[in-house]
Simulated scan of single mutants.
Amino acid sequence: MKIRYLLLNAYGKGGTIRTVFNQAGSMAAAGHDVEVVSVVRRRKSPRFPLDRRVRVTAIVDTYGAPPAPERSGWTARFSAQGRPSRYVPSGEVAREHFTRDVEARVIRWMARLRGGALVTTRPALNILAARHAGTDVVRIGQEHMNLGTHPRDVRAAILRHYPRFDAVAVLTERDREEYGRLLPGTRVVCIPNAVHAGRKRQSSYANRIVVAAGRLKSQKGFDLLIPAFAQAVATRPGWQLRIFGNGDKEAQLRGLIDEHHVYNHAFLMGFTPRLDDELAKASMFVLSSRFEGLPMVMIESMTHGLPVVSYDCPTGPADVITDGREGLLVPPRDVDALAVAIGQLMDDEGLRADMGTAALARSRTYAPEAVHPRWEELFTTLAAERTGPLRKLVRAAAA
């Protein structure tokens, strides 16, 4: 089967890109003809490894192109390149990337598709696919974020357009229930993302290192983690907090580190392509997010046997972790409760090891061999439903 995955930027660093690459590789290994299509391309090659059987192409390829000329006044406001999207809601966080020109190119690409399947991976792309992709293509809209985090205009567009999909795929059972209530009659399936494959070095639980990772954005709540860690480390001075990732909140977070006088204990490490190695050095992982879809970096940490301390935010942590088994869940945005939970694991290496062992076992339910057959079954089912009526017509005509 021809399977196309459409990403906004397949050359970026996000967790969605990595999980789509994993899925694409598994489908190619199963014998499918797989292509990853990037709306934009601005660098030579993707940052994440990808099965060599998977092709990567781009709709708007500006790698190596000279910078576009500066525009001003009427030309800037009314050129196709500068005008905002016609179809993508203003509340979609990636809307700024969908100029009228980019949007038109994506629509033309979708309209030319014939046969096979198209999997789109964020609301903007989902909405465009629901409206403009050819009806002889199996269309699957992936949602990587829970419904409640979308602004009102995005939810309205979801309600209006997602029923056109052959299936909407979400990451957790809670998501499936919420999207199902909004979209009665639409096939909504729960298929979690899979962690990347390979043997992982396990934590020894002896290093006094706490790890967190993600974009330095408000969503990830590192502004809540730093004061919580400051409370915990005040009576446990041998510990370090290492936060991996880049983003526009870096200056604010450095200010918080100074404000709480933990500059010798808390460190912004930047982006690393070797996060697996850094996770293996740690003794616990902390998720301080305000909201999530399904936090893959948390599950990645569990593959190294790390216990987790997490806010019970919507959605994901409670779908993976049972409080007191694989880690500790605390009320969302409660800095004091987060500090207590971090301190509890700091104080007890045996508890870290017990929870880490349970976390490792739980992570195996998100291994590619556990998750990706569910995608293949969905593709097979949808393709059969699409061709079934045609086969009946052909047989009736032959008779």
Rank of each mutant, 00 (worst) to 15 (best):
L171H: 05
R55H: 03
H32C: 09
L390E: 15
S283W: 05
V54P: 02
F48E: 05
H304I: 08
R391G: 10
T149R: 14
R108S: 07
E177K: 09
G198M: 11
F222H: 02
K2D: 10
K13M: 14
A94Q: 14
A111Y: 05
G247Y: 06
R160I: 03
R55I: 03
E96C: 04
D175M: 06
R112W: 10
A228Y: 11
S289H: 01
S45Y: 05
A280S: 15
A232N: 09
P332F: 07
H144T: 05
Y179S: 12
R391C: 08
T381P: 02
M302P: 03
M355P: 00
Q81S: 12
E70V: 03
Y205A: 04
R364N: 04
Y63A: 02
F267C: 02
F267E: 00
L378I: 06
I3F: 02
H161D: 15
V54E: 08
V60D: 12
V60S: 05
A58Q: 06
E300I: 02
R114L: 06
G255F: 03
N193P: 05
E250L: 08
M298Y: 07
G270D: 10
M302E: 14
S38W: 03
A194T: 01
H144P: 06
T62H: 08
T149E: 08
A194E: 01
G245H: 11
S301N: 04
V340T: 13
A234F: 04
L382V: 08
F267W: 01
M346S: 00
R236F: 07
A10T: 11
R208C: 05
L241S: 05
L382E: 13
P389F: 13
R83M: 14
P66Y: 03
H261K: 14
A213R: 02
S288Y: 07
V36Q: 01
R105S: 07
V154G: 00
L306F: 10
R364L: 09
V119M: 11
I209R: 03
S26T: 13
Y179C: 08
T57Y: 08
N246K: 14
E35V: 04
W239M: 01
V93Q: 10
L125A: 08
C190K: 15
E173T: 12
T120I: 01
A251V: 10
G148F: 11
G238H: 05
L8R: 14
D334H: 02
V20D: 15
W239C: 00
F165G: 06
L306I: 12
Y205P: 00
R122Q: 14
D347T: 08
E300G: 03
R208F: 04
A370F: 06
G25W: 04
R112G: 14
G324Y: 12
L147G: 01
A234I: 06
W375P: 00
T365M: 10
A104F: 12
A129P: 00
G245K: 09
Q219T: 03
A280V: 14
A341M: 03
R105M: 10
D166I: 03
A396F: 07
D347N: 11
Y205S: 05
A358R: 10
A129L: 02
A212R: 02
L390C: 12
R43W: 11
E173L: 12
G305F: 09
D223Y: 11
L6F: 10
E369F: 06
R42Q: 06
R362W: 02
A156S: 11
S289K: 00
I127V: 10
R236V: 07
A111R: 15
R164Q: 12
L50S: 04
I107K: 00
